[in-house]
Design a protein around this nucleic acid. Sequence first.
DNA 1: CCGCCTATCTATAACAA
DNA 2: TTTGTTATAGATAGGCG
Lengths: 221, 221
Amino acid sequence: MARGKIQIKRIENQTNRQVTYSKRRNGLFKKAHELTVLCDARVSIIMFSSSNKLHEFISPNTTTKEIIDLYQTVSDVDVWSAHYERMQETKRKLLETNRKLGLRLSECLDELDIQELRSLEEEMENTFKLVRERKIETTKKKNKSQQDIQKNLIHELELRAEDPHYGLVDNGGDYDSVLGYQIEGSRAYALRYHQNQHHHYPNHALHAPSASDIITFHLLE
Amino acid sequence: MARGKIQIKRIENQTNRQVTYSKRRNGLFKKAHELTVLCDARVSIIMFSSSNKLHEFISPNTTTKEIIDLYQTVSDVDVWSAHYERMQETKRKLLETNRKLGLRLSECLDELDIQELRSLEEEMENTFKLVRERKIETTKKKNKSQQDIQKNLIHELELRAEDPHYGLVDNGGDYDSVLGYQIEGSRAYALRYHQNQHHHYPNHALHAPSASDIITFHLLE
DNA sequence: CCGCCTATCTATAACAA
DNA sequence: TTTGTTATAGATAGGCG
């Protein structure tokens, strides 16, 4: 009889431990077998005794290798989904934080000093000018090859958007929006700052964004 | 109560089977845990339900991979090779994708028609103007609360940047850079387009980016 | 899904042969 | 060592929330 509640603690007596191992192993395998049959599941049990003896159980009509192969395939997916869950959770927290903060675009931009702002502004203008000029120059010079390349590019982007794995990256877009804010105007802009990872700021936590940080503009619909 | 001797026979009722699976799985794992502690053994249980959901048990201070590796050694079954091949194949595809994406900025921008370009340009200017005006108005009106909020925001961003899990997202930065291009000028810009996910384009594959797409500007150092 | 409950059934620790 | 016995703790089906 079980004399008193069994302490789940290593059995120190070598013989008793060996006997218990054998009996409980059989019990475990029996349970596993019942489970396979009752619930139509596939089970693999691999165990090594303290003396490194191998014992294994495998459900009928299956092989251990099959189970392990499947495990490898599926566990990767699980890793991804766990990762995805963590991202979603953090995203949720960020959204909540932002909601509480009710932070507006202007409050971010206020951290830019006026000179940096003008500098950034000017560079944006230059970019547009340059692009506009390039466009005019090459208006009809686009050759078929370029258009094909473009189509390929768009196609690749779509693949990324559709591939669940790339979804994690593309949902980065959702992350971007986490820190995005609407402002007045016919259209909404979202703006956020990244610390420029090429930089090392000794006083990282207190560093105010500057024009040398990476700045992301999202022109939203 | 166990109504009569349990027949070790597949439970046909879907719901009952699922419930029993869950309960017995917990029981099995508990037994396995007791066995590992009582008898100082290492146990790995891998199981798939009839709906192919994966559940696993692994004894403390062990990993499933260790057990499988050891199993492989003892039983002489090669279980990891398929996995490695799969990883390599994925890697190869990613590299190929990146190579294809090695396009230049102009080829993207050329898809914007001149009107969209001007429209975008104008909106950027409006944003800057609005921010600049607001800045002047509120120059010294920033209160401490706002600054705290700003610090919190920056802190959140840093957490994101430092969290290894977000490495995948931040490596999205690498993905972004796949579509980023340097152009002439004192500073480099990176520009990329996202399909605006709020839109549905019937002719998706051939849709040229327009100002209504989300457009991301990275002002690089 | 998860937990609680209870009547039964099962597993097993300690002991015995 | 193995096998059998037995008292008791544990497991669990089905019901309910």
